[in-house]
Each structure stands twice: as C-alpha cells, then as structure tokens.
Amino acid sequence: MRNIKTREGFEFWDKVNALPHYAFLLSPSGKSVQKFEDKAMGNWIDVHEAQKIVDQAQDRISELRDELGAAKGEYDRAVNKLDDLQLRLSAADQRIDDFAGGECEWHREADSGIWNSGCGETWSFHEDGPEENGMNFCHSCGKSLVVACDEEEPDSDDDWRMNPCKQGHRDVGAAGSVAHCYQCDEKIEAATTQEAFERWNATHPKQ
C-alpha cells in the first residue's frame, strides 16, 4: 500500500482524493472494454462542488473542536477553584467548631456599663447589658456568651443592715463598691459593694 500524505483534520478526504482514476474505452468492435489509469483528472473529487462543502464542514468541525478544548480548559479551572473554595470552607467550618465549644461568662463591674469577658476582654454598653443588646456570642473567642448571675440577694433586710459609723451616725449606706456615712463622710472602699458592706460591719460593732 502506498504512503498517502494527509493534512491534519482532513485525513479522510485526502485519502479519498488519493484514490486512482480509471478510464474505460469500448473497442471498435463493441465486444470488449479496455480499462486504463487516467492521471489527467487529478483529485477526482475536486471536480465536484461537494468538495467545497465538505472542506467548509471540516473547517467548522475543527473550529468546534478548538472551542470545545477551550471550554474544557475553562471548566477544569472552574473545578479547581471550586475545590479550593471547598477546602477553605471546610477549614472555616472547623474553626467555627473549635470556637463554638463551651461558654464565655461575662461579669459586670459594679454599677457601671463595663463588662469583662471570661477570655480576658472588656466591653462597654451605654444601656443595659449583653443580652439586651443582642449579643449571643463573645466578640473575642466566639463562644456562647453567658451572663454571670448577680450576687444572691440576702434572705432578710437584717443581712443588709449596716452598723452605725464610729461616731454613732446611723445614716449609712453602701453603693458603687463603697460603704460610707452620709453625715461624716467616713467610708470603706472595696472591689465590690458586698465586700465594702461586709468590711464595714466587721470593723463597726452594733450599737
């Protein structure tokens, strides 16, 4: 079989065009037919207008193949981006899970809008506290925000009754982490109002 030179994308048609051409002549007696190769016609399919249509169709097929290759490249890049985003999302979900576990207890400084978180941060509110301002999670550690319970109220009024000052004045009281006398300005300061109250009564006997 002879070697046929073909063009990329036109292999089928080049092979068809390479087929040999034959001519047939009737003998003068009309009793026989002589067959011989006709090399004058060139590519026999070129004599037909169909060849132009076929070539145009093949060109379009080649264009579509190129477009398909480009589209596949875009698709592969989109899939890679999607995979990357999925990895980032999984990592973010893991961080959320890590932060979501447990609770962060917030304590309010006495008679102020200052709140201290269990993770060591400080937050200030102009009005009310975390719950009233819609804070369900700590802004620092991301854990569920829990407001510390207020100090238990005394069982009776006697438990909060302050002893007179050292000069005998009974107009005394405790607020803002300070226990003091309203008449002589004697006072005891502490970290909390409860502590100031307890230190006052411990150093001032009943009268």
Rank of each mutant, 00 (worst) to 15 (best):
C119E: 00
F99C: 02
M1L: 09
M41N: 01
E63H: 15
I61F: 07
A202D: 14
K52F: 03
H126W: 09
P164N: 00
D46G: 08
K143R: 15
N116T: 13
C141P: 06
V172C: 04
G42N: 11
G102S: 05
L82S: 12
H48E: 02
A91N: 08
N201R: 09
E49S: 13
R60V: 03
G30T: 03
D171R: 13
A40V: 13
I61W: 00
L82G: 06
D157I: 12
K52A: 08
D159T: 03
H126P: 05
E186M: 10
V16Q: 05
C184N: 04
Q167A: 05
I4Y: 06
G73L: 06
G118A: 03
E37A: 13
K31I: 00
Y75Q: 10
K206H: 08
K81R: 14
V147K: 13
W44V: 12
R65L: 03
P164S: 03
W200H: 04
E153T: 10
T192E: 01
E74Y: 02
N133D: 10
L145D: 01
K187C: 09
R108P: 01
Y22C: 04
K206N: 07
K81H: 10
S140P: 08
E121H: 15
A148F: 01
K187N: 12
Q58M: 11
E131Y: 07
R2K: 13
D59P: 08
M1I: 06
P154R: 08
S156Q: 05
F137H: 15
R77M: 06
E121F: 08
I53E: 12
I61Y: 04
